[in-house]
Amino acid sequence: MKKQNKLQAVLFDVDGTLADTEQDGHRIAFNAAFKQFNLDWNWDIDLYGELLQITGGKERIRFYMENYAPTMLNKNDLKDWIVSLHKAKTKYFESQMETGSIPLRPGVARLIQELRQEKVKLAIATTTTMENVISLLKSTLGAESIDWFDVIGAGDIVPLKKPAPDIYHWVLNQLNLSAQQCIAIEDSENGLQSARAALLSTLITVSGYTSLQNFDGAVAVLSDLGEPSKPFTHIQGAAFAKEWVDYEALNSLIKK
């Protein structure tokens, strides 16, 4: 009998996966930054859902300009201006995080602690900024939690963002592990495509903005990671012995 690979690392996406940060976090911060820059832009809930098809905040701003404010593309310092606008947005988001108003999704804190006990490496692979990652971890798990993660791949550390696999290739390289020894946890179709292109088995926990996306290729699609007292809803893919995701469940999902 072929020996089962032992799970060596779990690679987490951040926005929508660790916490539902998009609708009432990043969106609100973008709108606050627009106001600060005297812009009449307003990203309502539906529009922001459309804009989330573009990964990366700076990329999202440029896409919006190309489609909704094309005359502003003539700015001589356009790239620097977008960077400044995005930095302002990041500061607003960090302020939100400090209030503790956005909690982790069900099962996230429990699973992270269990993986630490099992000596499984923890990593983050995200298109959001390092500042945003640190703010979320500090506000939900405490400042010490940053050191729980062996690798944090965030922001512009690679040139191409999801759905390109670059961020996952970078994290795997830093971990010095193969994709077959790891599993990714994502919430979006872009994230799934990115992880799968890096040959990672990928578990999806859908979020509000992503529930209707195409998750073909995921090992399983769930409502969330679940808790013993509040089971997840199974949507598609592999069946589980329990109704919450734990180390044993993740180990059963990685490629044999």
Rank of each mutant, 00 (worst) to 15 (best):
Q53V: 07
L141D: 05
K89M: 07
D150S: 01
R27A: 07
L253M: 12
K58C: 08
N251Q: 12
N38E: 12
E248I: 05
T126C: 02
S229Y: 10
D40C: 11
N251K: 00
A143E: 13
Y92M: 09
K256E: 13
A179D: 07
R105W: 04
S223H: 03
L111E: 11
L85A: 09
K91A: 15
M65V: 01
L18F: 05
S229F: 06
T210I: 02
A19Y: 03
L51E: 08
I146R: 01
Q23F: 03
A184D: 10
H234W: 10
L73F: 09
W244H: 15
I112Y: 01
F215H: 13
S95N: 15
L111R: 02
L137T: 04
R27V: 12
I134A: 08
H234M: 01
D40G: 04
F34N: 14
V108Q: 07
N214C: 12
S139F: 10
N190K: 04
D80K: 07
E22T: 00
L11A: 04
A33V: 02
I61Q: 01
L18A: 05
T127C: 06
G57A: 10
K121P: 02
S188K: 04
W81A: 13
D246L: 06
L11F: 06
L203R: 02
T21W: 08
K87R: 13
W148N: 08
R62H: 14
A164R: 06
N76A: 15
D166M: 00
I124Q: 05
A197H: 00
V120L: 09
T21Q: 09
W244I: 06
W244M: 04
L192W: 02
K87S: 13
I185W: 10
H169A: 01
S252D: 15
S139Q: 10
L250T: 07
D156H: 08
T233M: 10
V133M: 09
S139T: 03
D166T: 03
G155T: 03
S194N: 08
L175C: 06
G142N: 11
V171Q: 04
W81K: 08
V108C: 01
E189T: 11
S229R: 05
I54D: 00
L52W: 03
E227H: 06
K242C: 00
N214V: 00
K35E: 15
H234S: 08
Y168A: 04
L225H: 07
I61L: 10
R27Q: 13
